[in-house]
Amino acid sequence: MYRRYAIFYTASGPFGSRGAAWLGWDIAGGQSVAHPDGLGIDLSRVTEAPRKYGFHGTLKAPFALADGHSKTSLLTAFEGFCATHRPASVDGLEIAALGRFLALVPSGDPAALNQLAEQIVRRFDAVRAPLTYADLARRRVSRLTPQQDANLVAWGYPYVMREFRFHMTLTGRLPKADLEGVRQAAVQYLDGAIPAPFTIDALSLVREREDGKFETLLRRPLTG
């Protein structure tokens, strides 16, 4: 039984392998993996919050299926989208602090990535079940801006359209004093693995298991 689905970018090759080990969860295989040693930080602690999602960039946030839609119809729509849309690239990725957590964010012009994300949000909104009052209340605890709240109501997630910023989360919320040390460890560990240019050339349809962890259901190249 699967509670929610989402559309993510998930990395492959050395980049994907290192990201999975950093977080301790392999979203492609749906299994735990060992953290790397010798980085001088408690990776199990700093990655606890994002671990269940795996190493990814969100393009369509987790959603329950709307009435009248099934896993089969979602798979068909997903494969059709991938067959008719092109890859999107930026110059590269860099490790940055987004508030109190660390993530990989685009360097260079992100317009192509943003456009792809908008197309995904619009195309798959019809299969998304409306949020419940409890869902809305939980999201609104985060002190959303008026635009983010409008996005939440319209699209089921605050950080879409003009509020979207592609990122691949590396940590949970950290004390300010720890940010730089963890950032340096991440730079050291990911050195040579981050592709440049960085291209989203495939999408992953993922699902949330009963234990709350996410695993890949289907990964397809963008061939449009």
Rank of each mutant, 00 (worst) to 15 (best):
A126V: 15
S107L: 03
L75E: 14
I27H: 00
A112L: 09
K176E: 15
E180L: 15
A6F: 01
R162V: 13
D91Y: 06
F124N: 01
A97M: 02
A150M: 14
T199G: 05
L102W: 03
D125W: 08
L144M: 09
L218N: 04
I27G: 00
Y157W: 06
L217H: 07
A77R: 14
G80H: 14
R140D: 15
F63C: 08
T171V: 05
A177V: 14
A88V: 07
L218H: 12
R173F: 11
A97T: 00
L75R: 14
S32Q: 10
I194L: 08
P110I: 05
A103F: 02
L75V: 06
L65V: 10
I41L: 09
Q31E: 15
D191P: 03
G30A: 01
S73V: 06
G38D: 10
R173M: 11
S44C: 06
I194M: 04
L116V: 14
R165Q: 14
A34D: 15
A137I: 11
G99L: 04
F164N: 08
L179D: 04
F78R: 01
E48C: 02
P197L: 11
V206M: 10
S142A: 15
A83L: 13
A129Y: 10
A154Y: 07
G156S: 11
A11E: 05
H35D: 04
V206N: 03
Q184I: 14
G40T: 01
Q188E: 12
L75S: 11
T72F: 07
Y9L: 03
Y159M: 08
L102N: 08
G212D: 06
Q184T: 14
D125M: 02
G224F: 00
A111W: 12
A150K: 15
S73C: 01
A111H: 07
T76E: 12
R140G: 13
Y2R: 12
A96P: 00
G108Y: 07
R45G: 01
Q148I: 10
A88E: 05
V206K: 00
F101Q: 08
G192W: 00
T199P: 10
T223S: 13
A117R: 13
G172K: 08
Y159F: 15
R140T: 11
C82F: 07
P146S: 09
A185T: 05
F8Q: 00
G30V: 02
L190Q: 00
R3H: 13
T145F: 13
S17M: 01
L104W: 02
A134W: 02
K71V: 12
A6I: 03
E210P: 04
F166Y: 06
K213R: 15
R138Q: 15
K71G: 08
